[in-house]
C-alpha cells in the first residue's frame, strides 16, 4: 500500500466521521444532502459485496465494515432520527440522473460481465458523481457551514490522494486500473471549484459562500 493511499483512506475516514460528528452534536442534518449520503451508502454496499468472498487484508475488511456501517448510520440520522432538521426542499437534485447512467455505463464498461464486476463498476461510477446533490445544495443555498466545508474538503482530498497513489502504483508496480482512474479523475475534478472556495474563504476564517 502506498503512503498516498493510506493518507487518502484516512482522509476518507476523517470525512465520514466529521459528518457524523456534525450531525450528532448539532442534532441537525441542516445543509447536508440526504441524497448524496443515500448514494454513498449504495456505493459502499454495491462495492463491498466481496467482503465475504475475497479476503485482502484485515485493514481492507475493517475499512469496508467501517464505511458501510458509518454510511448506514449517517443515512439513518438524516432520514429518521433528525428528519425534522433535514433540508429536503433544498435537496432537489434528481438521483436517477446519475444512478441510471452509472448503471448503463457499468453494463458497458466492466472487467467481466458478472454480477460482482458490474456491481463493482457501478459503484465506482456512482461514487464519482454521488457528491453532485451536495454540491448542488451548497450552490442553491449559497453557503455551507464550516464543518460541512471541512467534510467536503476531506472527501475531495481522499480521491485526489488516490490519484497520486495510482501514479505511484503505475510507475513502481505497473498496476493500472482504467475504470477506477477515469472515474477518480472525474470525481476529483468535480471538487475543483469547491477546493478553490475552500482555500480562498474557509482557510481565511470566513464562511464558504458561493455568491459574493
Amino acid at each position: 500500500m502506498t503512503l498516498f493511499r493510506l493518507a487518502g483512506d484516512l482522509s476518507h475516514v476523517l470525512a465520514i466521521l466529521l459528518l457524523l460528528y456534525k450531525i450528532w452534536t448539532t442534532k441537525s442534518a441542516a445543509g447536508i444532502s440526504g441524497k448524496t449520503q443515500l448514494m454513498f451508502c449504495m456505493v459502499y454496499v454495491t462495492r463491498y459485496l466481496d467482503l465475504f468472498t475475497s479476503f485482502i487484508s484485515v485493514y481492507n475488511s475493517t475499512m469496508k465494515v467501517l464505511f458501510i456501517s458509518a454510511s448506514v448510520a449517517t443515512v439513518y440520522l438524516i432520514y429518521f432520527k433528525f428528519k425534522a432538521t433535514y433540508d429536503g426542499n433544498h435537496d432537489t437534485f434528481r438521483m436517477e440522473f446519475v444512478i441510471v447512467p452509472a448503471l448503463i455505463l457499468a453494463l458497458i464498461w466492466n472487467y467481466a460481465f458478472t454480477f460482482f464486476e458490474i456491481s463493482w463498476a457501478f459503484s465506482i461510477f456512482l461514487e464519482a458523481v454521488a457528491i453532485l446533490p451536495q454540491l448542488f445544495m451548497v450552490t442553491k443555498t449559497g453557503e455551507a457551514e464550516n464543518i460541512t466545508s471541512h467534510y467536503l474538503f476531506a472527501l475531495g482530498s481522499y480521491r485526489a490522494l488516490y490519484i497520486l497513489n495510482w501514479i505511484d502504483r503505475y510507475y513502481f508496480e505497473g498496476h493500472w486500473d482504467p475504470i477506477a482512474v477515469t472515474a477518480g479523475i472525474v470525481q476529483t475534478v468535480l471538487y475543483g471549484d469547491f477546493f478553490y472556495l475552500y482555500f480562498t474563504r474557509v482557510i481565511k476564517g470566513r464562511k464558504l459562500q458561493v455568491l459574493p
Binding site: N60, N110, Y111, A112, T114, Y162, N165, A180
Partner: peptide
Amino acid sequence: GEEGRQHDEL
C-alpha cells in the same frame, strides 16, 4: 479474465 480482477483498493 472472465472472473474480473481482484480489487485491492477501497
